[in-house]
Nucleic acid binder design. Structure first.
Length: 439
RNA sequence: GACCCGUUCGUCUAUCGGUUAGGACUCCAGAUUUUCAUUCUGGCAAGAAGGGUUCGACUCCCUUACGGGUCGCCA
């Protein structure tokens, strides 16, 4: 029998990293084994469900690249995939419980009568765990059908996993204590349970439980913050899973081929956004220039910067220095438009040496005298101007950077010089001189 | 409170009884780039505590502490 896993979110909010990682592990496990990944929407709580949430979850999964083989919008043999549409199926399974005399009425609702004995489960991550159901105070009979006739989570979740022939249930550790309840239900149905794997939760940097509103929690925020989906997938995979060696940068395909549940940790991990940014940089560096230009372009346009023919060479100059795509505009704005914003700190640092300033006296003229403009020719002109003023050429690099870019850091000066070209370089050196004279 | 899971550098982790406890992020230093950043090299930094078992314990067992989870007519 082939491997079948599922992700079963309830559409009550956006997709958060914890849910995304649960979906990812299920997806990786299914893909690794050439199995089927099912998406099922657990929308039994009508009051809290929203269509926006549903779309946010679908959208988040698509962005991450977690495609589902069965589920909403793609169909499948085990549908419908919305619990709100599976009413008759639940009624049928509920009747089995009634026939077996395993439920009783309580205040209009129906409770499932637990077998009062120790229940042992064999979790693929946590190992053997036993919960003693003789302790009724800790395990009161659970409601499976509400007084309004609707069914509760434990019941529908179990029925659907059985109906959809899910073989491996991979879910958050917050469900560990629910599993014996599910096992008891499955036994009452006379069915074989799936295998379970409970993965540790993701915590905030301070160790508290990560939930909505916490920084980095919403998967939907990642695209516009300039993260690559492959990097986010790589990073969240590393939270709770390890290849058991020193490697840590993986493409999605590499994760698929390497993933296994035996490599999942049991301790909860804290979310470190700084490392996530570093992972993103590693993935950005692996992009070729054309691809990088394509994904960075929307951010540059969003910042209102003009895109011209030199765009790809501009992108090439900064590609290996960006952590997140949203940083790109402020790294290249001086190359794309003529409105320079001078950084005060960089200005002060550049102008601290009076001798340096004298070099700019004739630098513009020397630049203008260059016949075939190139970075090398410009650098040679700078060296000559520096020598004439008795200043070391190296000392001029930083001031020239500030003059041409307005700030203290950026791409290699060779790239800046060649992209800017002669007339803009001359103009900016002159503008810089004027600013100095005025101050 | 009861029950369950967990505990290696600040963080993510390797180690499956014998290691100078390794890697990565962050931070610091050096190098290279005639410049800043990038990059590279190096450095700081860990087995929660106490008992066992053993020739030997981060690794196995117990206790304590701490962290997380679960005890709904939420999912």
């Amino acid at each position: 029998m082939s491997v079948r896993t599922r992700f079963a979110p309830s559409p009550t909010g956006y997709l958060h990293v914890g849910g995304a990682r649960t979906a990812l592990f299920n997806w990786l496990f299914a893909r690794h084994h050439g199995g089927v990944f099912v998406l099922r929407v657990e929308d039994t709580d009508e009051a809290r469900n929203t269509d926006e949430a549903k779309q946010a979850i679908f959208g988040g999964m698509r962005w991450l690249g977690l495609d589902w083989d069965e589920g909403p919008e793609v169909g499948g043999d085990c549908g419908p995939y919305f619990q709100s549409e599976r009413r008759e199926i639940y009624d049928r399974w509920f009747a089995k419980l009634v026939d077996a005399d395993r439920v009783y009425e309580d205040g209009g609702a129906w409770r499932f009568r637990f077998d009062r004995r120790p229940v042992t489960m064999h979790d693929l991550v946590c190992g053997e765990v036993t919960i003693d159901y003789r302790d009724e105070s800790n395990t009161p009979d659970m409601v499976v059908k509400r007084s309004d006739g609707s069914y509760v989570f434990h019941f529908v979740n179990v029925v659907d996993d059985l109906e959809m022939r899910i073989g491996h249930v991979i879910r958050g550790e917050d469900h560990l204590m629910n599993t014996p309840k599910h096992l008891q239900l499955i036994e009452a149905f006379g069915m074989e349970p799936p295998k379970y794997a409970h993965i540790p939760l993701i915590l905030n940097p301070d160790g508290s439980k990560m939930s909505k509103r916490d920084e980095g929690a919403a998967v939907g925020d990642y695209p516009r913050q300039g993260f690559l989906a492959s990097a986010v997938v790589n990073f969240i995979a590393m939270l709770g899973w390890s290849p058991k060696n020193d490697e840590e940068i993986f493409s999605i395909d590499e994760l698929v081929s390497r993933f296994s549940l035996e490599q999942v940790n049991r301790a909860p991990a804290r979310f470190d956004l700084e490392k996530c940014r570093w992972v993103n940089q590693q993935h950005v560096m692996k992009l070729d220039v054309a691809e990088f230009a394509r994904v960075a372009k929307p951010f540059v346009e969003e910042a209102g910067l003009p895109i011209d023919g030199a765009f790809e060479s501009v992108m090439a100059a900064v590609k290996d220095k960006v952590r997140v795509l949203s940083d790109v505009p402020k790294m290249v704005d001086f190359l794309l438009c003529d409105e320079l914003v001078y950084d005060g700190e960089a200005m002060a640092k550049a102008g601290s040496n009076a001798a340096v300033w004298s070099v700019f006296e004739d630098l513009a003229a020397r630049f203008e005298g260059i016949q075939d403009w190139s970075a090398d020719a410009a650098k040679a002109a700078l060296a000559e101007a520096a020598a004439a003023a008795g200043v070391k050429a190296g000392q001029m690099m930083f001031p020239l950077r500030v003059a041409l870019t307005g700030r203290g850091q950026g791409p290699d000066m060779g790239d800046v010089l060649s992209i800017l070209g002669k007339s803009r370089s001359v103009e900016r050196v002159r503008a810089f001189r004027r600013k100095e004279n005025n101050s």
